[in-house]
Measured scan of single mutants.
Amino acid sequence: DIIVVALYDYEAIHHEDLSFQKGDQMVVLEESGEWWKARSLATRKEGYIPSNYVARVDS
Rank of each mutant, 00 (worst) to 15 (best):
D1M: 14
D1N: 13
D1T: 13
D1G: 14
D1S: 12
D1A: 13
D1H: 14
I2A: 08
I2D: 08
I2K: 12
I3Y: 10
I3R: 07
I3F: 08
V4W: 13
V4P: 00
V4I: 09
V4T: 02
V4G: 01
V5E: 07
V5Q: 07
V5P: 00
V5I: 14
A6L: 01
L7H: 03
L7E: 03
L7F: 03
L7R: 05
Y8I: 07
Y8P: 00
D9N: 10
D9I: 03
D9K: 06
D9V: 03
D9S: 10
Y10V: 02
Y10H: 06
Y10C: 05
Y10F: 14
Y10A: 01
Y10W: 10
Y10P: 00
E11G: 06
E11R: 10
E11V: 15
A12E: 03
A12S: 08
A12T: 04
I13N: 09
I13D: 08
I13T: 11
I13L: 12
I13G: 08
I13M: 12
H14P: 02
H14K: 10
H14T: 09
H14R: 13
H15E: 15
H15D: 15
E16D: 14
E16W: 15
E16N: 14
D17F: 15
D17A: 11
D17E: 15
D17R: 09
L18I: 08
L18V: 03
S19Y: 04
S19I: 02
S19C: 06
S19P: 06
F20A: 02
F20Y: 01
F20P: 00
F20H: 01
F20Q: 00
F20N: 00
Q21W: 08
Q21P: 02
Q21T: 11
Q21N: 11
K22D: 02
K22Y: 05
K22F: 06
G23Q: 02
G23K: 02
D24C: 04
D24T: 05
D24G: 03
D24S: 04
Q25L: 15
Q25C: 14
Q25I: 15
Q25M: 15
Q25V: 15
M26L: 13
M26Y: 02
V27P: 00
V27Y: 08
V27N: 04
V27Q: 10
V27H: 07
V27C: 10
V27A: 07
V28H: 00
L29C: 06
L29W: 07
L29I: 10
L29Q: 05
L29V: 08
E30T: 10
E31R: 13
E31I: 14
E31H: 15
S32G: 14
S32K: 14
S32P: 06
G33T: 06
G33H: 05
G33P: 05
E34G: 10
E34Q: 12
E34A: 12
E34N: 13
W35V: 07
W35H: 07
W36E: 02
W36T: 08
W36A: 05
W36G: 02
K37S: 04
K37P: 07
K37V: 09
K37C: 12
A38L: 04
A38V: 14
R39W: 08
R39S: 05
R39K: 09
R39P: 01
R39G: 03
R39E: 04
R39T: 05
S40E: 07
S40V: 08
S40C: 11
S40M: 15
S40Y: 04
S40A: 09
L41T: 07
A42F: 07
A42G: 09
A42P: 05
A42V: 14
A42R: 15
A42H: 10
T43D: 09
T43I: 04
T43M: 03
T43K: 04
T43S: 10
T43N: 09
R44W: 14
R44Y: 14
R44T: 10
R44F: 15
R44E: 12
R44V: 06
K45C: 12
K45A: 10
K45P: 00
K45V: 08
E46A: 07
E46F: 07
E46H: 06
E46N: 04
E46V: 13
G47D: 00
Y48R: 11
Y48C: 12
I49P: 01
I49F: 05
I49T: 00
I49G: 00
I49S: 00
I49V: 08
P50R: 06
P50S: 05
P50T: 03
P50G: 03
P50I: 03
S51Q: 09
S51K: 14
S51C: 12
S51R: 12
N52Y: 10
N52L: 09
N52Q: 10
N52F: 10
N52G: 12
N52R: 12
N52E: 10
Y53I: 06
Y53W: 07
Y53A: 11
Y53F: 11
Y53E: 02
V54F: 13
V54P: 02
V54R: 00
V54E: 01
V54W: 02
A55E: 13
A55C: 12
R56V: 12
R56W: 09
R56P: 10
R56G: 06
V57C: 11
V57R: 06
V57G: 05
D58S: 12
D58C: 12
